[in-house]
């Protein structure tokens, strides 16, 4: 640990590279819902962290009170948090689409309400999500070992990305979403119900955050404030990626990998510092992010 490269060891470094993929997948899954909501409707959803938190609490609730097995809790969290997102969009966000600053404030307010609501219902002591015994273990592949649960997270992330891609680029609904994203008025002139498209994408984004949250409850601690620790990373991924799906995938993988490599050579704190500096420099030269969506800016 004395010098920067004094302790270089190839197998440990290779492990760090592979761990970077895992970290990247966690950051990406945290950012997926945000990407969709921001990318489609242009809403900067400050309550995203609380959607993650609600996902964890949904899983906890289903497991502790109804005895639902963990792997059924994940899709159930998608539905529950998706519904919360739907209600929020219908009740609040849809009135604010053309007022970006107001959505910022309103969603922030909603985040406080959600946090406090959960605290009132469940208390502020940490909760606990149980997983099957095998997911507390790790697998060894040669020199490298990784927890099985992180592989599950990676696979679910990959699956979700594939599903979103299919939904957006291979279905009729996806075509409508892209049309609305590019030009809302023009799309409406062609008979697309843009209000409905926004509603569905917002609910979808919220539901994806719910899935991520129920997975984070296993890696981390379940608390009303747990969302805040992930939301910064999620915003970073979206901003660096530029708000498109491919951008978020690239940004999630890239930042996760860099964090892991920097942390290997220096320390965790310093790695985070380096990463932020790099992102600032990147945004200086590419303020739209890596892969910006082409759309009519309103």
């Amino acid at each position: 640990m004395d010098s920067l490269f004094g302790n270089f060891d190839l197998s440990a470094f290779a492990s760090a590279l592979l761990l970077g993929i895992s970290i990247g997948s966690i950051w990406l899954i945290a950012a997926l819902g945000l990407t969709i909501i921001y990318g489609t409707a242009g809403v900067i959803n400050m309550a995203h962290g609380e959607f993650l938190m609600l996902g964890a609490y949904s899983s906890y609730m289903l497991q502790a009170y109804f005895g639902v097995p963990f792997f059924l809790c994940i899709p159930a969290s998608f539905v529950i948090v998706g519904l919360v997102g739907l209600i929020m969009e219908r009740g609040l966000i849809r009135y604010l689409y053309n007022r970006p600053l107001d959505t910022l404030l309103a969603t922030w307010g909603v985040s406080l309400v959600l946090m406090q609501g959960v605290r009132l219902i469940f208390g502020s002591d940490p909760k606990y999500i149980a997983v099957p015994q095998m997911f507390q273990e790790s697998v060894e592949i040669g020199f490298f070992s990784i927890s099985l649960f992180r592989i599950v997270v990676l696979l679910i992330t990959a699956l979700l990305v594939a599903m979103i891609w299919y939904l957006f680029y291979r279905t009729r609904f996806g075509m409508q979403v892209r049309a609305v994203t590019q030009n809302k008025e023009m799309a409406a002139a062609f008979g697309i119900n843009s209000g409905r498209v926004y509603m569905m994408t917002f609910a979808l984004g919220a539901g994806l955050a719910g899935v991520a949250g129920s997975l984070f409850g296993v890696l981390n601690i379940v608390l009303p404030t747990m969302g805040t620790s992930y939301v910064v990373q999620a915003f970073l991924v979206v901003v660096v990626g530029g708000g498109s799906l491919v951008g978020s995938v690239a940004a999630g993988a890239g930042t996760g990998e860099l964090q892991s490599i920097f942390a290997y050579f220096t320390s965790d704190t310093f790695a985070r510092f380096l990463l932020f500096v790099l992102i600032v420099i990147l945004l200086r030269y590419k303020p739209q992010g890596l892969f910006a969506i082409t759309k009519a800016r309103r």
Partner: peptide, 13 residues
């Protein structure tokens, strides 16, 4: 912070 894998990797080494 909630990400400990980089540190655990160093410990393993």
């Amino acid at each position: 912070s909630s990400e400990f894998t980089p540190v655990l990797n160093k410990i393993k080494q």
